[in-house]
Simulated assay, not measured.
Amino acid sequence: MPAPVGPDPAPPPADLPVDAARVDALCAALVPEPGRELEDFVTTVGAAPLDQGWDNVLWPVGTVRGEPVVLRVVRRASAVPLLGREILVLRHLADVAEQLPMRIPTPLATTDHATLVPWIPGRTAGEVEEGSRVGVAWSVARMLARVHSLPAPRVDPNPVRGAPLATRTEAFAGDLERSGVDAVTRRRARGGWDRGLGATTWDRPALLMHGDPHPGNVVVPPAGTVREAALIDWGDATIGDPASDLGALLLHDPSDSMLRAYRAEATWAGIADEACWSALVDRSWAWGVRLALSLLTAYPRGHRLGRAGQRLLDACR
């Protein structure tokens, strides 16, 4: 029997509160994306959001050509630049979206604080049955390999994603202390982190990265549908060392075989170099440890993301 799923932690307070009135006003201010028209947008603002994260709210607002759409609305001022970053990267990927192994959100129209996108139904990868988890992870591995191998747009570096591991040492130490893991897990986590710190740093051109491809940002379609899973929430997209994306991949399935699946699909310059790859593996596991500890400090052990973090720490080499 699966462990019970604990409640999601309460998000930080919103300094840009989202209600039906604000959503209605934002819908009226939408500007269609280049090449798109909104004549078929039938506006029906719902009474309540469909979902809410730390930075954004998804609010049902009607249909476009009969398909349900939602408004992704910023709820914190600090997330406004993230929405801009997300839109920039999704525009960059639009021309190759049909060739990607996973779906991505499709901006239909935007304002400064919101974007109109088709609703993607399903469950997160953290909620799927254990027997489906590895299959979803393989899809994420292929998706990251493809994204990392594409030309990168002009996007600012992210200080907490794709950055050198050494810049996250203080955050690692703090999360290790707060996580409450036992002594054996603590030693395992410290060992994985230290191996990554000791590995050769990334010295190749910065790669395009999703930034936060953990199980909560992968939507798996309902059973019986033929539509593929989707990688959502591109607000942390960045350029840099792909190890942090691969650390998040290990949250889906903490195994070297998953990293090898990624390598088999990636085509960026240097992927075939054994020394480069070996160092990347060590840094990826270190990032995985860092992200796992972060999840354990934010979510209960019984929560789907808390379980993902614990599973990675248990598998850490």
Score class of each variant (00 low, 15 high):
E274P: 02
A189F: 12
D245A: 05
A199L: 04
P157Y: 10
V160D: 09
P300W: 02
R85D: 13
R204G: 02
S179T: 04
P68K: 15
V80G: 08
L176T: 06
P164M: 04
P157L: 06
V134K: 08
A109Q: 02
E33M: 14
A47P: 15
E274W: 07
D51I: 09
A3C: 01
D273I: 03
T111S: 04
R76H: 09
W234D: 10
A279S: 07
N56H: 15
T267A: 05
P222A: 13
E129L: 07
L250M: 11
R76W: 06
V61F: 08
W277A: 00
G53L: 14
A125E: 02
P205Q: 05
L150C: 06
S149G: 07
A137I: 11
V155R: 08
G224I: 14
E129S: 03
R36G: 04
A206D: 12
V218F: 05
D253Q: 07
D15C: 15
N56G: 14
G198W: 01
R204P: 02
D156A: 11
E86M: 06
V289Q: 07
T111P: 08
A14C: 12
M209S: 09
P151S: 04
A272E: 08
R123M: 05
A20G: 06
S244G: 09
T115I: 07
L259E: 05
P222Y: 15
G174H: 15
R103H: 11
N217V: 01
N217T: 10
D253H: 13
A308M: 03
R283D: 09
S284Y: 07
M1Y: 00
P11L: 10
S255Y: 05
V73I: 11
S294M: 11
R204D: 11
W202M: 01
L249Y: 14
A275S: 11
D182L: 01
R263F: 14
G306H: 02
T169Y: 10
L144K: 13
A152Y: 10
W268T: 01
V89H: 09
L249F: 03
L83P: 15
L280F: 08
I271E: 01
D253K: 07
W202N: 00
Q99P: 06
I120L: 15
G46N: 05
P11W: 03
A94D: 09
G216Y: 04
L26V: 15
L305W: 03
V5F: 01
H303F: 00
V220P: 11
